[in-house]
Design a protein around this nucleic acid. Structure first.
Ligand SMILES: [Zn+2]
Length: 356
DNA sequence: CGTATTTGACCCGCGC
DNA sequence: GCGCGGGTCAAATACG
């Protein structure tokens, strides 16, 4: 008698367990799927960017330029761009498979010789994990023009990536372990700025600085500085790999695969800093005045992701699909962040093909 | 007990 | 030279 009951119970338990497992797997699968989608989208963007870049290269005259990249359905991008004057603007829109992206480029000329690139990548998002953080005023536009420090091993990679996203977890891991080594209060921002260093590798020069917006506590700006000398999180890696495989035919020189740059990133040429916006908002004043940034500043490409609710439904376009992918993606803030970083990284590498 | 975080001191470039 | 803002170090502390 007891045995029966017991057995039944056990079976029941087993069942539940299996179901749970199933569910878990399903979720995972979904995650992966979104990841792939994102990667695809990003890949497209990259592609577009590459095209643009080539175009630019064709005309040596244009040294500085601003590029706006939109993922998902973006109707209008308002990125603040650095101080710049945009001269020409061209926009492309395309949809590959299930992703739909809009891409626009602005060309601007700067007096300085450095190239100023502004990437504005917009991705739709709606509710990702909104958590509160600690700080972050605004002003993400920084690039280092000079040499900042003393940590550089060989070539002292100075690439700077700024990611603006809807509040991420305090410890938003982009696949790496970060050790907090400092925190500073900034004068115009009630929120302090936190400094992190990558702790995954013994000597990984990568640093990250997180800052929360004063008015928008939900918006955080994460700035990555340097390049990892180790592999990043499996997720991003997988994504990257997948992307590369997926689009093997398309070769961006040797920069596409972020991983590719890992082997020897020591000697990379100066990387243009860039900024990525994963927020969901337009960004009233992204970087007011990038020029006057002390530490890591200078000019930087800007990438804005996030923002837009998909109302574009263009004829011939399969918007809802794109929307879907985006939505799923957004649900994974962490992934988004890592991806953003990865993408940004790829882009940088892209800028300079010569190495050492 | 080992490790990660906190937090004030220290350093450094820059403007006045 | 001084004050200031920004970035980093390191001792102290919290955490598991
Ligand atoms: Zn690292």
């Amino acid at each position: 008698m007891w045995e029966f009951e017991s057995e039944a119970k056990m079976e029941h338990h087993k069942k539940s367990e299996i179901v749970a497992e199933l569910k878990r797997i399903s979720e995972e699968n979904q995650k992966l799927t979104s990841l792939i989608k994102v990667m695809s989208s990003n890949y497209e963007s990259l592609k577009a960017h590459l095209g643009k870049q080539q175009e630019d290269w064709s005309s040596p005259r244009t040294m500085g330029k601003t590029l706006h990249l939109g993922l998902g359905m973006a109707e209008d991008v308002n990125d603040g761009g650095c101080d710049n004057s945009a001269n020409s603007e061209s926009a492309f829109s395309g949809s590959s498979g299930e992703k739909n992206f809009k891409y626009s480029v602005e060309d601007l000329q700067l007096p300085s010789k450095k190239r100023k690139i502004n990437y504005s990548l917009q991705k739709s998002e709606s509710g990702n994990s909104s958590t509160e953080e600690e700080d972050l005023p605004d002003k993400e536009a920084h690039g280092v023009d000079g040499a900042a420090g003393h940590e550089a091993a060989v070539g002292s990679p100075r690439r700077n990536v700024s990611v603006r996203t809807r509040s991420e977890a305090n410890t938003v891991s982009d696949g790496c372990h970060w050790r907090k080594y400092g925190q500073k209060m900034t004068r115009n921002n009630p929120c302090p700025r936190a400094y992190f260093k990558c702790a995954m590798a013994p000597s990984c020069p990568v640093k990250k600085l997180v800052q929360r917006r004063a008015e928008d506590p939900s918006i955080v700006t994460i700035t990555y500085r340097g390049q990892h000398n180790h592999l990043l999180n499996p997720m991003a890696m997988a994504a990257m790999t997948a992307a590369s495989n997926h689009s093997a035919s398309f070769t961006m020189g040797n920069h596409l695969p972020f991983a590719a740059s890992f082997p020897t990133l020591s000697s990379m040429s100066p990387f243009p800093p860039s900024s990525l916006n994963l927020t969901g908002n337009p960004d009233p004043n992204p970087n007011p005045n990038p020029n006057s940034n002390p530490g890591w500043h200078s000019v930087h490409p800007q990438l804005d992701v996030g923002n837009m609710q998909g109302q574009i439904a263009r004829p011939g376009g399969n918007t809802h699909l794109g929307l879907n992918s985006v939505a799923s993606i957004t649900s994974d803030p962490n992934f988004t962040a890592s991806l953003a970083a990865a993408i940004a990284g790829s882009m940088f590498g892209l800028g300079t093909s010569s190495k050492a």
